[in-house]
Computed example of a mutant assay.
Amino acid sequence: MRLPLLLLAIFSSANAASHSTASPRLTVTAPRRPLASLQKEELPTKIPAALGLETLIQQRGGASTATTTTMTQESAGLPSAVKLLIGAGGIYAAFLYYGSLQEDVFRYTAKDGTQFSQAWLLQVIESLANVLIGFVGMQLAGATAGIPKKAFAISGASQVSAKACMSLALANGLSFPLATLAKSGKMAPVMFGSLILGGASYSLREYLQVAAIIGGTAIVSMGKKKGGSSSALGVAYIIASLVLDGVTAGFQKKLKADTAKAGVKPKPYDFMFWTNFYMCLTAIVISLGLNEVASGLSFCTANPEIFSKIIKFALCSAVGQSFIFYTIANFDPLVLSTVTTTRKIFSVLLSIFLKGHSLSLTGWSGIALACGGIVSELVASSGGKGKVH
């Protein structure tokens, strides 16, 4: 438990130190982020959703006995309600603020009218923060030997590409509420890929859940009162992000199979470190190829306000993932899923109320339909109550 609490203290201090330069709107972002991606968001992911949330949930089989025992022993004296408050509160705090900062980064306009558009440089900074925290956690929990790195490399590359496309969608005019709702429909490409390639079958309820999320998102897009329709390029990027989510899910399954075949059980911080290590390498190569490093750093130097937002954005990602691991170690996957899933809904509502988005009655009906699909997916996954280990 020490690492999540230490990270929260460090993050709070950093946020307080930069309070004088933060926009008034950011200071009101008090709610705490429920369960994503990978992240996601979420986790990371969505989890996830950094380390995708799908990876974290799939690997719960993934939280090794050693890590679970270590983290549980450290907090053994705490009541389960306090553990839940620490885990869920940390996730809410980090990832709700994470979403707010991500929106602010791509809505920021410099005095000369230019905006930050270097999505791959943003991924370099975010994944680097997660690499550092993952390394510290790995040293505390003990690293796992013999991990097959190739599977991590492929999974990390596809995952960072999905995250970059989400940022590029925001940079190209797609609103944050709409992008977040659309990303909640990531089950659609996963289902499609499984149907075509894996011969899977799904129930009518599962098809209706996906249809509700996608349909609600489309209605929200048409129900804006102001600001016009979303850009075609922004929509194209969010679709690409969803497709890459489906690809990532396939690679994550292969990652799990490869580690099992190698006879190793990576611990949570192993996953955090190695996934983000290859995400960072991928982002560095692409950002250098697109010349985003020089232009992005130049923009940040000329606009220090946005640079502080980017640093806090990266810290939120790393702190949030640490609390995700804490929650995994102490509770059943349903608890984590509940937190990250409801986070998506709160992130959308907070953005609407705090960032000046305006919706018509049609838009609100779309919000309700999409949120209904998200909640339905959560309820359907509930095989029983989450319990403390």
Rank of each mutant, 00 (worst) to 15 (best):
G90S: 10
E54F: 13
V388I: 12
F11E: 01
A63G: 13
L170Q: 09
T70M: 08
L122G: 02
P333K: 07
A9G: 12
T109K: 08
Y278K: 04
A49V: 10
L38N: 07
F116D: 04
S127K: 04
L197G: 08
G77E: 11
L168G: 02
F251R: 03
A188M: 09
G363T: 08
M191Q: 12
Q252H: 05
V131T: 05
L101W: 04
K163N: 14
S20M: 06
T282Q: 02
V210Y: 07
I367T: 01
F313P: 10
S241Q: 02
K355Y: 14
F273A: 01
I57L: 15
G384A: 10
H19M: 13
S194D: 15
R205H: 14
L242N: 05
I374T: 01
T114V: 01
T144P: 00
S322Q: 02
S117I: 08
Y98A: 02
T282K: 09
L349P: 04
E74V: 07
A14G: 13
V348I: 11
A368V: 15
A249W: 06
I345W: 02
A66E: 14
P333E: 10
I352N: 06
Y98V: 00
S382G: 14
L288R: 07
T327M: 14
P266S: 03
T217R: 01
V82F: 10
T45W: 09
F251I: 01
G363C: 10
L242V: 01
P44Q: 14
L349V: 15
V388Q: 13
P333L: 09
A249L: 04
L51N: 12
Y207V: 01
A260N: 13
S360D: 07
F95C: 06
A66F: 05
H357V: 00
V160F: 10
L3A: 04
S75M: 10
S229E: 09
L121W: 06
S308D: 14
G193I: 09
S13T: 15
A110V: 03
I352P: 02
K183P: 05
A236P: 09
K253P: 02
F331I: 00
F152W: 06
